[in-house]
């Protein structure tokens, strides 16, 4: 199976603090196409830092992040914008959407940034919102959607850009149990049916149980890397 991300000796040390914080220590991992991975670990173990580094939002202090044969750890900041736009899908914990745009426009927006044609944009935005079960909310603004629905729009947006993989930092943290399961169901189905590579961080044991690979970080280092057969 194709490798989508390969990290090598990844370290991140924050020095803007009183004592230097080693948020990541020598993390070497490989992610294959179609994997559905949960990054878990106690608070402060480096989950967010890891996702930011492999998502090109943060630079590692040491090590390499190779995506599509390119080491993004050495990439210029200005190039990273375009790299993220074309290769990586993001879902954050909350407030993912532009409040002044409808669900449809929010999903279209990323394709606009990619300079896709208007027709292509509209077709795919509708398709993606359908995938996450929101065909009836196309013209609704985020403020009128529930937290779960907002996260589903964010997933639709992430997928609309046809990324190599999708990163989600605690996507269910702000959701009630039912919405959390619902979102996970959708993510699992997309992973299974569309072969989307998904990497998400979470604290939530119920959510962890859905992942087919679980990587546990402790103090910035990989403690466990387990594979499960599910669904």
């Amino acid at each position: 199976m194709k490798t989508v991300i390969k990290t090598n000796g990844l370290s991140k040390t924050y020095t803007n603090t009183a004592v230097p914080v080693h948020a990541l220590k020598n993390v070497t991992l490989e992610f294959k196409e179609g994997e559905f991975t949960a990054i878990v670990g106690p608070s402060g173990s480096g989950k967010t830092t890891f996702l930011n580094v492999i998502g090109g939002l943060d630079k590692p202090t040491e090590g390499h992040v190779v995506i599509d044969n390119v080491d993004i750890a050495t990439m210029k900041e200005s190039q990273l914008f375009d790299f993220r736009l074309r290769h990586i899908g993001f879902v954050f914990q909350a407030y993912n959407l532009i409040p002044v745009l409808t669900a449809m426009e929010n999903v279209s927006f990323i394709m606009l940034l990619q300079k896709q044609s208007k027709r292509e944009m509209e077709k795919r935005a509708k398709e993606m919102l359908e995938q996450v079960g929101l065909s009836d909310k196309l013209d609704i603004r985020p403020s009128q959607l529930s937290g779960g629905q907002q996260q589903r729009v964010a997933v639709a947006r992430a997928l609309a850009s046809k990324p190599n993989f999708v990163l989600a930092d605690e996507p269910t943290a702000n959701l009630d149990t039912e919405s959390a399961f619902n979102l996970l169901d959708i993510m699992a189905r997309l992973n299974r049916e569309e072969n989307i590579t998904l990497i998400f961080s979470t604290h939530d044991q119920r959510v962890i149980d859905r992942a087919r690979r679980v990587i546990t970080l402790v103090d910035g280092a990989v403690d466990k890397d387990e594979h499960f057969e599910r669904n």
Binding site: G55, L57, S78, F81, D82, F83, R84, L85, R86, F90, F92, Y95, N96, L97, I98, P99, I110, L113, R157, A158, S161
Partner: peptide
């Protein structure tokens, strides 16, 4: 700030 952060994270560049 948060919204602008998301926009920049998903790839809306500085020029835009």
């Amino acid at each position: 700030i948060r919204e602008l952060g998301v926009l920049m994270a998903i790839g809306m560049n500085k020029k835009r």
